[in-house]
Structures are given as structure tokens and as C-alpha cells.
Simulated assay, not measured.
Amino acid sequence: MDESASAPPPARRGGNGRAGRAAYDLDAVLDVAVRAFNERGYDATSMGALAERLGTSKSAIYYHVSGKAELLRLALERALGNLERLLEQPALADAAALDRLESVIRGAVHVLVEELPFVTLLLRLRGNTEVEREALARRREFDHAVAKLVEEAMADGALRSDVDARTATRLLFGMVNSLVEWYRPGGGLTADQVADAVVVMAFEGLRR
């Protein structure tokens, strides 16, 4: 009898996992890291703690990234990149400022709903590291671009002009960003329904 025919298959490793466990890809590592950063705080989360959550070794994580700072950078890029792309929609290039603004607000709701842990991490940054400070600077640039859309819509007469544009922008995104505190995926509200509610609440209060 050929003993090799009845021998158990070798343990799965894939180059970055412990024997007996499926290897993790970068997306899976990133998901676990973001959950840990949100729950424990970035500074309080070690690579060892991440490895323990994954049930793997630290070297398995280093197979994908150079360290914890790169995980943070990738996570913040996922949130910021999606938000920044809302300002670059070719189909809206010639649209009125109010239409572009509404599209950005709707899109921001979708980004938040679809990337909830990643946007939550972005909103909780304290600026303690260079990666965080760079992300906060990009977020300010995004806010300034939205404020410019508000100013343009005011100049067009589509929005009331007795409210400061920057203040209006902060209030708009205060409403959108509050979703991280109460929105729960699978809770009955779709991203479209939430976006509709935000637009009605925001623009019915601002529109002439």
C-alpha cells in the first residue's frame, strides 16, 4: 500500500500564516488592524496584538507591510481617497455648484456607510504621528474644497448667503460624520435612504 496516498495533506501556510490556518491577504490584515485601532487606539495597538488577533505571527504581517505606520497609512488612504474622488467626477464638471455640492454630500454618505471602520478611524485622528498629520491636512483640503462649492452655490443664489460658507460646511459634515456614532450596517437603512435624509435636512434648511 502506498503510504503517501493516505497521508494527511500538508498544513496550509501560504507564506504568511501559521500551520493549520489559511494565509491572510492584505485586505484581511487591514480590516483586523482598523478594528483594533478603533477599539484600542492606534498608539495602544502593537504589532504583537494584531498578530494575536489574526492568529498568526508578526512576521506574517510584515510579509504584507513594513509596520504599523504603513497599516495606518493604507487605512487612511482608503477613507481619504474615496472622499477626494468625489470632487473629481467628470460627469459633474459642468454642473451647477449646488448640484455638485449635493453629489459630494450624497457620495460622502455612501463612503461613510461602505467604509465605516476606515472613516471612523479618520475622524478619530489626533495628529500624534506624521501619517496622522498628513491625513488631517488632506482632510482640511477636502473641507476647503467643499466650502468653495458652498460659496459658489451662494454666489449663484441657490443657497442663502447669510450663513458663513465654512460654518455651513462644518454643519453639513457634522451631520454626515455623526453617522459613525449611530449608523449600523444591516440596521434597516440603506446608504441611499440615509443620503436622502441628509440632503433633505441640509438643503431644505439652506435653499432659498
Rank of each mutant, 00 (worst) to 15 (best):
P10S: 12
A11M: 12
R12W: 05
R12E: 08
R13G: 13
R13D: 13
R13K: 14
R13P: 03
G14S: 07
G15D: 03
G15T: 04
R18D: 15
R18K: 12
G20Q: 14
Y24P: 11
D25K: 08
D25N: 13
L26A: 15
L26S: 09
V29W: 04
V29L: 05
L30C: 03
L30W: 13
L30V: 09
L30M: 10
D31R: 02
A33W: 02
R35C: 01
R35T: 00
F37E: 00
N38G: 00
N38F: 01
E39G: 00
G41H: 04
G41D: 07
G41L: 07
G41M: 09
G41K: 11
Y42E: 01
T45I: 10
S46F: 00
S46T: 07
S46Y: 00
G48R: 13
G48H: 13
A49S: 14
A49P: 06
A49Y: 10
L50S: 06
E52Q: 09
R53D: 00
R53A: 02
R53K: 07
T56Q: 02
S57I: 02
S57H: 13
K58Q: 14
S59E: 10
A60F: 09
I61T: 12
I61V: 14
Y62R: 08
H64N: 09
V65F: 10
G67A: 07
K68S: 01
K68W: 04
K68R: 15
A69Y: 13
L72H: 02
R73Q: 12
R73Y: 09
R73I: 09
A75I: 04
A75Q: 06
A75L: 14
A75C: 10
R78M: 03
R78D: 08
R78S: 07
A79D: 01
A79N: 06
L80P: 00
L80C: 04
G81H: 06
N82R: 13
L83R: 05
E84D: 03
E84A: 01
R85F: 13
R85A: 12
L86E: 09
L86M: 07
E88F: 13
P90K: 08
P90C: 13
A91C: 11
L92Y: 05
A93P: 01
A93D: 06
D94I: 11
D94H: 14
D94A: 15
A95L: 03
A96E: 11
A96S: 13
A96G: 08
R100I: 00
R100F: 02
E102M: 07
I105C: 03
I105V: 15
I105S: 01
R106I: 09
V109G: 05
V109E: 03
E114Q: 10
E114H: 12
E115F: 10
L116C: 00
L116R: 00
F118W: 08
L122W: 02
L122I: 04
L123E: 07
L123V: 06
L123I: 07
L123W: 12
R124W: 06
L125P: 04
L125E: 11
R126E: 11
R126L: 05
G127Q: 11
G127I: 12
N128E: 10
T129M: 08
E130P: 10
V131Y: 06
V131L: 11
V131H: 11
E132S: 04
R133L: 11
R133V: 09
A137H: 12
A137V: 14
R138Q: 11
R139T: 04
E141P: 05
F142Y: 12
F142H: 14
A147C: 02
A147G: 03
